[in-house]
Protein backbone atom coordinates (compact mmCIF):
# COMPACT_ATOMS: atom_id res chain seq x y z
CA UNK A 1 0.00 0.00 0.00
CA UNK A 2 1.48 3.28 -1.11
CA UNK A 3 2.47 5.61 1.74
CA UNK A 4 2.31 3.01 4.45
CA UNK A 5 5.26 1.35 6.04
CA UNK A 6 5.38 -2.27 5.01
CA UNK A 7 5.35 -3.47 8.61
CA UNK A 8 1.95 -1.84 9.09
CA UNK A 9 0.28 -4.05 6.53
CA UNK A 10 -2.15 -6.43 8.12
CA UNK A 11 -1.64 -9.99 6.98
CA UNK A 12 -4.95 -11.89 7.19
CA UNK A 13 -4.58 -14.85 9.48
CA UNK A 14 -3.95 -17.92 7.33
CA UNK A 15 -7.05 -20.07 7.12
CA UNK A 16 -6.70 -23.36 8.91
CA UNK A 17 -9.45 -25.88 8.11
CA UNK A 18 -9.98 -28.39 10.89
CA UNK A 19 -11.25 -31.92 10.41
CA UNK A 20 -14.59 -30.86 11.89
CA UNK A 21 -15.06 -28.44 9.03
CA UNK A 22 -15.27 -31.35 6.58
CA UNK A 23 -17.78 -33.29 8.63
CA UNK A 24 -21.44 -33.14 7.71
CA UNK A 25 -24.47 -34.93 9.12
CA UNK A 26 -23.90 -37.96 11.31
CA UNK A 27 -23.28 -40.97 9.08
CA UNK A 28 -26.27 -43.31 9.10
CA UNK A 29 -24.53 -46.33 7.58
CA UNK A 30 -24.74 -49.57 9.54
CA UNK A 31 -22.05 -50.12 12.17
CA UNK A 32 -19.21 -52.03 10.55
CA UNK A 33 -19.97 -50.74 7.05
CA UNK A 34 -16.84 -50.05 4.99
CA UNK A 35 -18.27 -46.72 3.87
CA UNK A 36 -17.34 -45.21 7.26
CA UNK A 37 -13.62 -45.76 6.66
CA UNK A 38 -13.75 -44.29 3.15
CA UNK A 39 -15.55 -41.20 4.46
CA UNK A 40 -13.01 -40.65 7.17
CA UNK A 41 -10.11 -41.18 4.72
CA UNK A 42 -11.52 -38.54 2.34
CA UNK A 43 -12.12 -36.07 5.17
CA UNK A 44 -8.60 -36.53 6.52
CA UNK A 45 -7.03 -36.14 3.12
CA UNK A 46 -8.98 -32.92 2.50
CA UNK A 47 -7.85 -31.61 5.87
CA UNK A 48 -4.24 -32.65 5.31
CA UNK A 49 -4.22 -30.96 1.91
CA UNK A 50 -6.18 -28.00 3.31
CA UNK A 51 -8.64 -28.03 0.43
CA UNK A 52 -11.25 -25.38 1.28
CA UNK A 53 -14.53 -27.27 1.91
CA UNK A 54 -16.39 -24.92 -0.46
CA UNK A 55 -14.09 -26.00 -3.31
CA UNK A 56 -15.03 -29.66 -2.91
CA UNK A 57 -17.97 -31.13 -4.81
CA UNK A 58 -18.93 -34.70 -3.99
CA UNK A 59 -21.25 -36.25 -6.54
CA UNK A 60 -22.89 -39.60 -5.92
CA UNK A 61 -25.51 -41.89 -7.40
CA UNK A 62 -28.02 -43.98 -5.47
CA UNK A 63 -27.26 -46.73 -3.00
CA UNK A 64 -25.79 -46.96 0.48
CA UNK A 65 -22.43 -45.52 -0.52
CA UNK A 66 -24.10 -42.70 -2.41
CA UNK A 67 -25.28 -41.17 0.86
CA UNK A 68 -21.64 -40.14 1.16
CA UNK A 69 -22.02 -36.41 0.28
CA UNK A 70 -24.55 -35.90 3.08
CA UNK A 71 -21.89 -36.83 5.61
CA UNK A 72 -19.34 -34.37 4.27
CA UNK A 73 -19.45 -30.66 4.79
CA UNK A 74 -18.83 -29.69 1.20
CA UNK A 75 -20.91 -29.06 -1.87
CA UNK A 76 -22.71 -32.26 -2.77
CA UNK A 77 -24.86 -33.64 -5.53
CA UNK A 78 -26.69 -36.82 -4.55
CA UNK A 79 -27.86 -37.62 -8.07
CA UNK A 80 -29.77 -40.48 -9.67
CA UNK A 81 -29.11 -44.20 -9.72
CA UNK A 82 -26.16 -44.82 -12.02
CA UNK A 83 -25.61 -41.20 -13.00
CA UNK A 84 -22.93 -39.65 -10.80
CA UNK A 85 -20.28 -39.68 -13.51
CA UNK A 86 -21.99 -37.48 -16.13
CA UNK A 87 -22.85 -35.01 -13.36
CA UNK A 88 -19.31 -35.01 -11.97
CA UNK A 89 -17.92 -34.44 -15.48
CA UNK A 90 -20.38 -31.58 -15.98
CA UNK A 91 -19.37 -29.95 -12.69
CA UNK A 92 -15.71 -30.17 -13.64
CA UNK A 93 -16.18 -29.09 -17.27
CA UNK A 94 -16.21 -25.34 -16.62
CA UNK A 95 -14.92 -25.19 -13.07
CA UNK A 96 -11.28 -26.29 -13.05
CA UNK A 97 -10.98 -24.78 -9.56
CA UNK A 98 -13.27 -27.37 -7.97
CA UNK A 99 -12.12 -30.69 -6.49
CA UNK A 100 -14.65 -33.17 -7.79
CA UNK A 101 -15.22 -36.60 -6.24
CA UNK A 102 -17.62 -39.14 -7.70
CA UNK A 103 -18.87 -41.80 -5.30
CA UNK A 104 -20.50 -44.85 -6.78
CA UNK A 105 -21.20 -48.42 -5.83
CA UNK A 106 -20.98 -51.73 -7.68
CA UNK A 107 -24.62 -51.60 -8.78
CA UNK A 108 -24.53 -47.88 -9.49
CA UNK A 109 -21.30 -47.97 -11.50
CA UNK A 110 -21.12 -51.44 -13.02
CA UNK A 111 -24.81 -52.14 -13.73
CA UNK A 112 -27.19 -49.22 -14.27
CA UNK A 113 -24.41 -46.71 -14.86
CA UNK A 114 -22.03 -48.93 -16.82
CA UNK A 115 -22.29 -46.85 -19.99
CA UNK A 116 -21.20 -43.72 -18.16
CA UNK A 117 -18.38 -45.58 -16.42
CA UNK A 118 -16.79 -46.53 -19.76
CA UNK A 119 -17.04 -43.00 -21.10
CA UNK A 120 -16.02 -41.14 -17.95
CA UNK A 121 -12.83 -43.20 -17.88
CA UNK A 122 -12.19 -42.31 -21.51
CA UNK A 123 -12.97 -38.60 -20.95
CA UNK A 124 -10.25 -38.63 -18.30
CA UNK A 125 -11.35 -35.40 -16.62
CA UNK A 126 -9.50 -34.49 -13.47
CA UNK A 127 -11.88 -36.12 -11.00
CA UNK A 128 -11.55 -38.81 -8.33
CA UNK A 129 -13.87 -41.78 -8.78
CA UNK A 130 -14.36 -44.02 -5.74
CA UNK A 131 -16.26 -47.22 -6.50
CA UNK A 132 -17.32 -48.67 -3.16
CA UNK A 133 -17.76 -52.34 -4.03
CA UNK A 134 -19.51 -54.49 -1.43
CA UNK A 135 -20.68 -56.94 -4.12
CA UNK A 136 -24.37 -56.58 -3.23
CA UNK A 137 -27.30 -54.17 -3.50
CA UNK A 138 -27.52 -53.20 0.16
CA UNK A 139 -30.07 -50.38 0.26
CA UNK A 140 -32.67 -52.40 -1.63
CA UNK A 141 -31.99 -55.39 0.61
CA UNK A 142 -29.60 -57.86 -0.84
CA UNK A 143 -30.01 -58.38 -4.57
CA UNK A 144 -27.24 -59.80 -6.76
CA UNK A 145 -24.90 -57.13 -8.10
CA UNK A 146 -22.57 -57.40 -11.10
CA UNK A 147 -19.69 -58.18 -8.70
CA UNK A 148 -21.49 -60.79 -6.57
CA UNK A 149 -19.51 -64.01 -6.58
CA UNK A 150 -20.67 -66.99 -8.61
CA UNK A 151 -23.00 -69.18 -6.61
CA UNK A 152 -23.61 -66.72 -3.80
CA UNK A 153 -27.27 -66.69 -2.77
CA UNK A 154 -29.14 -63.40 -2.76
CA UNK A 155 -32.74 -62.12 -2.69
CA UNK A 156 -32.91 -62.26 -6.48
CA UNK A 157 -30.94 -65.48 -6.85
CA UNK A 158 -31.81 -67.61 -3.83
CA UNK A 159 -30.08 -70.59 -5.48
CA UNK A 160 -26.91 -68.64 -6.06
CA UNK A 161 -25.65 -66.05 -8.54
CA UNK A 162 -25.79 -67.80 -11.93
CA UNK A 163 -22.88 -65.96 -13.55
CA UNK A 164 -19.27 -65.24 -12.70
CA UNK A 165 -18.79 -61.66 -11.43
CA UNK A 166 -17.78 -58.78 -13.62
CA UNK A 167 -14.22 -57.65 -12.93
CA UNK A 168 -14.34 -53.84 -12.65
CA UNK A 169 -10.56 -53.63 -12.79
CA UNK A 170 -9.94 -55.41 -16.08
CA UNK A 171 -12.90 -53.59 -17.60
CA UNK A 172 -11.52 -50.21 -16.57
CA UNK A 173 -8.01 -51.11 -17.69
CA UNK A 174 -9.44 -52.03 -21.09
CA UNK A 175 -10.91 -48.60 -21.74
CA UNK A 176 -8.98 -46.40 -24.14
CA UNK A 177 -7.36 -43.37 -22.53
CA UNK A 178 -7.58 -44.86 -19.02
CA UNK A 179 -5.17 -43.02 -16.75
CA UNK A 180 -5.38 -44.31 -13.15
CA UNK A 181 -6.67 -47.59 -11.75
CA UNK A 182 -6.11 -48.67 -8.16
CA UNK A 183 -7.62 -51.09 -5.67
CA UNK A 184 -7.74 -50.93 -1.91
CA UNK A 185 -9.70 -52.54 0.93
CA UNK A 186 -11.91 -51.14 3.67
CA UNK A 187 -10.13 -53.09 6.42
CA UNK A 188 -6.73 -51.48 5.91
CA UNK A 189 -7.21 -47.75 6.67
CA UNK A 190 -3.57 -46.74 6.02
CA UNK A 191 -3.63 -48.32 2.58
CA UNK A 192 -7.09 -46.88 1.90
CA UNK A 193 -5.88 -43.37 2.86
CA UNK A 194 -2.68 -43.64 0.83
CA UNK A 195 -4.66 -44.83 -2.20
CA UNK A 196 -7.25 -42.04 -2.01
CA UNK A 197 -4.48 -39.50 -1.58
CA UNK A 198 -2.65 -40.80 -4.66
CA UNK A 199 -5.91 -40.81 -6.61
CA UNK A 200 -6.56 -37.18 -5.73
CA UNK A 201 -2.96 -36.26 -6.59
CA UNK A 202 -3.33 -37.74 -10.04
CA UNK A 203 -4.25 -35.23 -12.73
CA UNK A 204 -6.90 -37.11 -14.64
CA UNK A 205 -9.77 -39.48 -13.88
CA UNK A 206 -8.59 -41.75 -11.10
CA UNK A 207 -10.61 -44.91 -10.59
CA UNK A 208 -10.35 -46.54 -7.19
CA UNK A 209 -12.18 -49.74 -6.40
CA UNK A 210 -12.58 -50.23 -2.68
CA UNK A 211 -13.29 -53.83 -1.68
CA UNK A 212 -15.84 -53.63 1.09
CA UNK A 213 -17.99 -55.74 3.28
CA UNK A 214 -21.65 -55.10 3.85
CA UNK A 215 -22.19 -56.19 7.45
CA UNK A 216 -25.74 -57.26 6.62
CA UNK A 217 -25.28 -59.18 3.40
CA UNK A 218 -21.62 -59.76 2.59
CA UNK A 219 -19.86 -59.53 5.95
CA UNK A 220 -18.06 -62.80 5.33
CA UNK A 221 -16.78 -62.39 1.78
CA UNK A 222 -13.26 -61.36 2.73
CA UNK A 223 -12.96 -63.59 5.80
CA UNK A 224 -10.06 -65.39 4.12
CA UNK A 225 -8.05 -62.18 3.79
CA UNK A 226 -8.87 -61.01 7.29
CA UNK A 227 -7.77 -64.32 8.71
CA UNK A 228 -4.63 -64.62 6.60
CA UNK A 229 -3.03 -61.45 5.28
CA UNK A 230 -1.21 -63.38 2.57
CA UNK A 231 -4.45 -63.40 0.58
CA UNK A 232 -3.77 -59.72 -0.06
CA UNK A 233 -1.10 -59.02 -2.67
CA UNK A 234 0.56 -55.63 -2.22
CA UNK A 235 1.69 -54.09 -5.50
CA UNK A 236 4.71 -51.89 -4.92
CA UNK A 237 6.59 -49.31 -6.91
CA UNK A 238 8.10 -45.87 -6.19
CA UNK A 239 5.46 -44.45 -8.58
CA UNK A 240 2.70 -46.49 -6.99
CA UNK A 241 0.90 -46.34 -3.66
CA UNK A 242 3.62 -45.89 -1.07
CA UNK A 243 2.94 -47.17 2.46
CA UNK A 244 4.68 -46.35 5.73
CA UNK A 245 7.41 -49.01 6.34
CA UNK A 246 5.62 -50.42 9.41
CA UNK A 247 2.37 -50.88 7.48
CA UNK A 248 4.22 -52.31 4.51
CA UNK A 249 5.92 -54.89 6.72
CA UNK A 250 2.57 -56.28 7.85
CA UNK A 251 1.76 -57.35 4.28
CA UNK A 252 4.20 -60.10 3.45
CA UNK A 253 2.78 -60.98 0.07
CA UNK A 254 4.23 -58.26 -2.16
CA UNK A 255 5.05 -57.81 -5.81
CA UNK A 256 6.96 -55.16 -7.75
CA UNK A 257 4.73 -53.66 -10.37
CA UNK A 258 5.51 -50.65 -12.55
CA UNK A 259 2.22 -48.79 -13.02
CA UNK A 260 3.27 -47.86 -16.58
CA UNK A 261 3.10 -51.56 -17.50
CA UNK A 262 -0.44 -52.06 -18.77
CA UNK A 263 0.03 -55.69 -19.78
CA UNK A 264 1.22 -56.68 -16.35
CA UNK A 265 -1.54 -54.58 -14.81
CA UNK A 266 -4.07 -56.69 -16.69
CA UNK A 267 -2.55 -59.91 -15.45
CA UNK A 268 -2.58 -58.72 -11.85
CA UNK A 269 -6.11 -57.32 -12.10
CA UNK A 270 -7.37 -60.64 -13.46
CA UNK A 271 -6.01 -62.70 -10.57
CA UNK A 272 -8.66 -64.45 -8.50
CA UNK A 273 -6.38 -66.31 -6.11
CA UNK A 274 -5.40 -63.12 -4.24
CA UNK A 275 -6.73 -59.60 -3.70
CA UNK A 276 -4.20 -57.30 -5.36
CA UNK A 277 -4.02 -53.87 -3.74
CA UNK A 278 -2.18 -50.77 -4.90
CA UNK A 279 -1.80 -49.03 -8.21
CA UNK A 280 -2.36 -51.13 -11.32
CA UNK A 281 -1.90 -48.43 -13.87
CA UNK A 282 -1.16 -44.76 -14.24
CA UNK A 283 -0.63 -42.77 -17.41
CA UNK A 284 0.02 -39.10 -16.66
CA UNK A 285 0.06 -38.37 -20.39
CA UNK A 286 -3.47 -39.52 -21.22
CA UNK A 287 -5.55 -36.86 -22.99
CA UNK A 288 -7.60 -34.83 -20.51
CA UNK A 289 -11.05 -33.79 -21.69
CA UNK A 290 -11.46 -31.23 -18.91
CA UNK A 291 -8.73 -29.20 -20.61
CA UNK A 292 -10.85 -29.28 -23.77
CA UNK A 293 -14.11 -28.33 -22.08
CA UNK A 294 -12.42 -25.37 -20.40
CA UNK A 295 -11.90 -23.69 -23.78
CA UNK A 296 -13.23 -20.18 -23.92
CA UNK A 297 -13.35 -19.70 -20.15
CA UNK A 298 -12.63 -16.14 -19.13
CA UNK A 299 -14.05 -14.43 -22.21
CA UNK A 300 -15.27 -10.97 -21.27
CA UNK A 301 -18.87 -9.92 -21.95
CA UNK A 302 -17.68 -7.58 -24.69
CA UNK A 303 -15.69 -10.36 -26.37
CA UNK A 304 -18.77 -12.57 -26.22
CA UNK A 305 -21.03 -9.85 -27.60
CA UNK A 306 -18.56 -9.19 -30.40
CA UNK A 307 -18.55 -12.87 -31.37
CA UNK A 308 -22.35 -13.08 -31.22
CA UNK A 309 -22.80 -9.95 -33.33
CA UNK A 310 -20.38 -11.32 -35.87
CA UNK A 311 -22.25 -14.62 -35.97
CA UNK A 312 -25.58 -12.86 -36.47
CA UNK A 313 -24.10 -10.60 -39.14
CA UNK A 314 -23.34 -13.66 -41.28
CA UNK A 315 -27.10 -14.16 -41.67
CA UNK A 316 -27.74 -10.54 -42.60
CA UNK A 317 -29.21 -9.74 -45.99
Amino acid sequence: MVGLKTEWEIEPAPRECTLAEYKGAEARWCPGCGDHSVLSAVQKMARDKQIPPERIVVVSGIGCSSRFPHYMSAYGFHSLHGRPLPVACGVKSRRPDLHVFAISGDGDCCAIGAGHWVHAIRYNMNITILMLDNSIYGLTKGQTSPTTRLGRASSTHPHGAPLPPLNPLTVTLGISNVSFVAQTVDWNPPHLSATIRAAHDHEGASFVRVLQRCPHFTGDVYADALEDRSHVLLMEHPDGIVLEPAMRERLKNRVDHDPRNLGEAFQLAARTDVYPVGLFYRDPDAVRYDLVTAHGLGKTPSEKLGAIEEAIERFAI
Binding site: R83, L85, P86, V87, A88, C89, G90, K304, A307
Partner: peptide, 30 residues
Amino acid sequence: NFENAGGIVHQAEDEIAAIGFALGCSYAGK
Protein backbone atom coordinates in the same frame (compact mmCIF):
# COMPACT_ATOMS: atom_id res chain seq x y z
CA ASN B 1 -19.35 -21.09 -33.69
CA PHE B 2 -19.82 -21.41 -29.94
CA GLU B 3 -16.22 -21.19 -28.83
CA ASN B 4 -15.81 -17.60 -30.03
CA ALA B 5 -18.64 -16.67 -27.70
CA GLY B 6 -17.07 -18.57 -24.80
CA GLY B 7 -19.12 -21.76 -24.99
CA ILE B 8 -18.58 -25.45 -25.69
CA VAL B 9 -20.59 -28.31 -27.13
CA HIS B 10 -20.31 -31.57 -25.22
CA GLN B 11 -21.37 -34.61 -27.22
CA ALA B 12 -22.30 -37.03 -24.47
CA GLU B 13 -22.35 -40.82 -24.61
CA ASP B 14 -26.15 -40.85 -24.43
CA GLU B 15 -29.19 -38.65 -23.84
CA ILE B 16 -29.17 -39.31 -20.10
CA ALA B 17 -25.53 -38.33 -19.78
CA ALA B 18 -26.21 -35.24 -21.87
CA ILE B 19 -28.72 -33.88 -19.35
CA GLY B 20 -26.68 -35.13 -16.37
CA PHE B 21 -23.62 -33.26 -17.63
CA ALA B 22 -25.72 -30.14 -18.23
CA LEU B 23 -27.10 -30.32 -14.69
CA GLY B 24 -23.57 -30.70 -13.34
CA CYS B 25 -22.59 -27.50 -15.17
CA SER B 26 -25.66 -25.75 -13.91
CA TYR B 27 -25.01 -26.80 -10.33
CA ALA B 28 -21.49 -25.38 -10.67
CA GLY B 29 -23.03 -22.04 -11.66
CA LYS B 30 -22.58 -22.28 -15.42
